[in-house]
């Protein structure tokens, strides 16, 4: 049996990769993809815990959070599209009229 900590380590690594992506990418789509990665690494955690504690709540939670992630992506892409219509670009670091 694979020890639980392997799953946790993988999830933490995936989460960090997602974080790094959010912090460095300029492209909005990539950023949203990185956020999906973070959410899914949390899901991985949930499912792993669910198996190893022999409770089903975690898997139910994972299913809910997958649905939520889909909805989140929908809203995010819609905002990006509106931005693209206005500026003809989706590089979010160039969006800084609001600051200071």
């Amino acid at each position: 049996m694979i020890p639980l900590i392997f799953y946790l380590g993988l999830a933490a690594l995936l989460f960090s990769i997602g974080l790094y992506g959010v912090m460095t990418h300029k492209n909005g789509i990539r950023m949203i993809m990185c956020i999906e990665l973070m959410l899914n690494s949390a899901n991985l955690n949930l499912v792993a815990f669910s198996s190893y504690t022999d409770t089903l709540n975690g898997q139910v939670f994972a299913i809910f959070s997958i649905a939520l992630a889909a909805a989140e992506a929908a809203v995010g892409f819609a905002i990006l599209m509106a931005i693209y219509r206005m500026h003809d670009k989706i590089n979010l670091d160039e969006l800084n009229i609001l600051r200071w």
Partner: peptide
């Protein structure tokens, strides 16, 4: 201090983490 608020999302995310 207000200069902390650079207006760039990436900075914001970095600050959170």
């Amino acid at each position: 201090l207000r200069k902390v608020q650079t207006g760039v999302i990436q900075t914001y995310a970095t600050a959170v983490i």
